[in-house]
Every structure is written in C-alpha cells, then in structure tokens.
Computed example of a mutant assay.
Amino acid sequence: MSARSSLSRPSADGPVRDGIPEHGRIPRYYAVKVGLLEVIAELGEGSALPAERELCERFEVSRATVRQAVGELVLEGRLSRRQGSGTFVAPPKIVQPLALVSYTEGLRRQGIEPGRNVITLERRAAGPALAADLRIEPADEIIHIERVLLADAERVGLESTYLRAARFPTLLDVFDPEQSLYACLRERLGVVFDGAEERVETVLATPREALLIGTNPALPMLLMHRISWGPDGEPFERVRSLFRGDRLSFMTRLGRVE
C-alpha cells in the first residue's frame, strides 16, 4: 500500500478519526499531520525532523501541504523551529498545577529548575482597574513586580504581580525578585493564602511581550488572571501571567459534586 493510499483510509478511532469532518473526506494536510505524529514518536525528543523534500516524497504531497501540517505541530508545541538549524521534536510540555502553589513549587515538583529575569520593580498608584480588583482607592499605592519566567533557563512566560503596598510596607526590603514571591510572603511576612479566583484564556502576545518572552507574536499564548485573598476575605494580590502555549499546559483535580 502506498503512503498516499494509507493516508486516505481512516482508522476506526484515534487522531485521524477525530479529525474527519462530517462529509467524511480527510483534509490532506491533516492526514500528513497524523503521519508526522508517528514520525515524531519514532524520532524522540530533540531529534531533527526529516527534510521537507523527504517528507513530501514519503507522504506523496506538495510542499505547501507538508508546511501546513508542520506549522500546526509547531503551534501545538510538538515541534520547534530553530532559525538556521531546522525543525526538531520538542520536549514534553511543562505541566503547571492550577492550585495555590507558586510557579517555583510547581516546576520543582517536576524536576525543572525555575528562574526569573526582573523587568519591573516599582511602587505606583493603583489606578481605577487595579483599585477595583484590590478594593482600594485609585490613588493608593501598589507594588508592581514584573518578571520573565524561566524553566531550565528557557523563557516560558511573563508575570506581572500587583500587591497592596499598605499591606506589605516592608516587602521590597526583604524580597529577592529572582526568588519565589510566595515563599517570601509566607516565610518572611507571615502571609496566609486562603483562596483565589483564576481565569484562563488564549491570546496573542503584544510585540513587547513577545520580545521579552522570545516567542513569535503569531503563536497562541495562555493568559491567566488571578486575584488572591487571605482569611479575612480581602483581596491583596492580582497576578497577570502570560505563558507560551507551546511549552506549558495546566492541570487541576476535580472532585465529585454532591
């Protein structure tokens, strides 16, 4: 059976069947994409993808079809492009828990070394939007900490944290911005996190964000908004975290609803 005929015949289940539209015709690029997933599994992490010409011959399709299939796998984080070197099998995505744990804790549990590059460390007026979220006045001061997030020295995200300055008057004196903020709040300032509300959506990075994270502005990003509060129910922190969708995924555990 030729590569062309094998791509035209869907399996009873699995990714090919999942991608078949109702009219039953498999898009050519999608069949190539499924075939490439098998190639990726055989090659293993860090291996170079065969040359475009070789893939065209293997699947008996045009360069445009191969490029579309490869492009989708790059967007999904299965493949990564290195300028001047080629396309390679990407490492597995980092799994970050959706829980009241810090970025540092989440990565170290997976054997990944976290890191941060400080971009902004300042005190300024809250402004209307932040004031509404933190239940303070627009003229009240907040502490703004903006950092590029690293995983084994690879840039994977950009985090902006806003805290009530009046509640943490000594924070900037005791906080090392290259270390875990949550560890500092708990261990140095005795802060108790009682709860948080978190929202996740997909966005495209702004030109500034893409430059700081080192990603293509066309790649989808995962944007997380979090407001945290203590035992008194008063919000004291708002966090805006932007993560590379090709490198991170999120996990949470759900319980049964009675």
Rank of each mutant, 00 (worst) to 15 (best):
187 E>Y: 08
217 P>S: 14
158 L>T: 07
158 L>S: 09
245 G>M: 07
180 S>R: 01
162 Y>R: 10
249 S>G: 14
151 A>D: 08
237 E>A: 13
197 E>W: 12
243 F>N: 06
238 R>M: 06
194 D>L: 01
169 P>Q: 15
192 V>T: 11
244 R>A: 14
203 V>W: 03
171 L>Y: 00
176 D>S: 10
218 A>V: 05
182 Y>T: 12
232 D>Q: 12
212 L>E: 06
244 R>V: 01
230 G>K: 02
208 R>P: 02
227 I>H: 03
188 R>I: 02
218 A>E: 10
187 E>M: 11
231 P>G: 05
157 G>N: 09
187 E>H: 13
159 E>N: 12
177 P>G: 11
199 R>A: 13
228 S>R: 01
229 W>N: 07
185 L>P: 04
185 L>T: 07
220 P>R: 09
160 S>M: 03
175 F>C: 08
208 R>K: 15
230 G>I: 01
190 G>R: 11
212 L>Q: 05
233 G>F: 10
186 R>L: 08
162 Y>L: 05
215 T>E: 10
204 L>G: 12
194 D>C: 03
156 V>Y: 00
160 S>T: 08
158 L>E: 03
149 L>T: 11
249 S>F: 00
152 D>P: 13
199 R>N: 08
201 E>L: 05
223 L>T: 01
162 Y>P: 01
207 P>R: 14
235 P>W: 02
191 V>E: 12
215 T>P: 00
155 R>H: 15
208 R>W: 10
158 L>H: 11
221 M>V: 03
219 L>G: 05
247 R>K: 15
152 D>W: 12
182 Y>N: 09
172 L>M: 13
195 G>S: 15
232 D>I: 02
212 L>K: 04
241 S>M: 10
238 R>F: 08
186 R>K: 15
215 T>M: 10
180 S>M: 04
232 D>N: 14
159 E>G: 12
211 L>F: 10
249 S>M: 08
197 E>K: 11
246 D>P: 05
167 R>P: 02
169 P>Y: 14
189 L>H: 07
193 F>I: 07
172 L>N: 04
228 S>Y: 00
156 V>F: 08
215 T>L: 07
205 A>F: 03
236 F>P: 00
180 S>Q: 05
183 A>E: 12
175 F>A: 05
180 S>Y: 00
208 R>F: 09
175 F>K: 01
191 V>T: 14
188 R>V: 00
232 D>L: 04
195 G>Y: 09
175 F>M: 08
217 P>K: 12
213 I>M: 09
175 F>V: 06
183 A>L: 11
160 S>A: 09
197 E>N: 13
169 P>N: 13
162 Y>V: 04
212 L>S: 03
201 E>R: 15
219 L>W: 14
217 P>V: 12
206 T>K: 02
235 P>Q: 08
184 C>Y: 00
190 G>C: 04
220 P>M: 06
209 E>K: 09
178 E>S: 09
183 A>C: 05
176 D>W: 05
211 L>S: 13
206 T>Q: 04
